[in-house]
C-alpha cells in the first residue's frame, strides 16, 4: 500500500514538473505561430511561458534530489570509511532540510506579502502571490524528498544504505 502510494507520488512528481515545463514550451511555440502566421503575438504568453517553466523546474528540484542529480563534491567524502560516510551523509541531509525549511518559510512569507500588497505583474496584471505560490509548494516537495532519503539512511540501522553505497560507482 505504502509502496504503491510511493510509486504514484513519484509518477505525480515526474508528470507534474515535466508537464508544467512542457506547457511553458507550448506557450512559446504558440506565440511564435501567432507572430508568423497571424502577425500578432501576446506578451502575456511570454510571461506565462516563463512562469510555467519556472514552476516546473522549481518543483523539479525535488525530482533532481530524488534521482541524485544535484551536483556534489565527493573528493573528501569518498575517502572516508563507509561508516563515517553514512554519518556525514546524515549531517548533509539535515543541512539540506534546513535549507528546505528556510526556502519554504521565506517563500510563504513572500507569498503573504504579495497577497497583502496586491502587487501584480507588469505585463498582464496577474496577481504575483499566485506566481510565487510555487516557492512554498516546491519547498514542501523538496523537504519531503530529503526526509525520505534521510529515512533510508536510518532504515534497518542503515543496512540498506550500506548495501546501496558500498559498491564503486
Amino acid at each position: 500500500m505504502i509502496k504503491r502510494l510511493g510509486r504514484s507520488y513519484k509518477a505525480f512528481e515526474d508528470y507534474f514538473c515535466g508537464g508544467l515545463v512542457f506547457i511553458g514550451l507550448s506557450l512559446i511555440m504558440l506565440n511564435v505561430i501567432l507572430r508568423y502566421f497571424f502577425n500578432q503575438s501576446r506578451s502575456i504568453l511570454d510571461e506565462f511561458s516563463t512562469y510555467f517553466m519556472i514552476w516546473g523546474t522549481l518543483a523539479g528540484t525535488a525530482v533532481a534530489l530524488r534521482d541524485d542529480h544535484h551536483i556534489k563534491v565527493d573528493m573528501l567524502f569518498i575517502r572516508l570509511p563507509i561508516k563515517l560516510q553514512r554519518w556525514v551523509s546524515v549531517i548533509a541531509h539535515i543541512i539540506g532540510i534546513f535549507f528546505g525549511l528556510f526556502y519554504t518559510f521565506y517563500g510563504s512569507q513572500l507569498v503573504g506579502r504579495y497577497y497583502t500588497s496586491g502587487q501584480v505583474s507588469t505585463d498582464s496584471s496577474f496577481p504575483l502571490w499566485i506566481v510565487y505560490l510555487i516557492m512554498p509548494v516546491s519547498g514542501l516537495m523538496f523537504i519531503f524528498r530529503i526526509l525520505t532519503k534521510l529515512y533510508l539512511l536510518f532504515k534497518n540501522g542503515g543496512a540498506d544504505w550500506h548495501r546501496a553505497n558500498s559498491g564503486e560507482v
Binding site: 507572430r35 502577425n39 507588469t122
Partner: peptide
Amino acid sequence: KGLKFRTQSGGLLD
C-alpha cells in the same frame, strides 16, 4: 497598418 513593433513591455503599449 500591418507593421510589427518591438515594445519594452506589454499591456498598454500592446
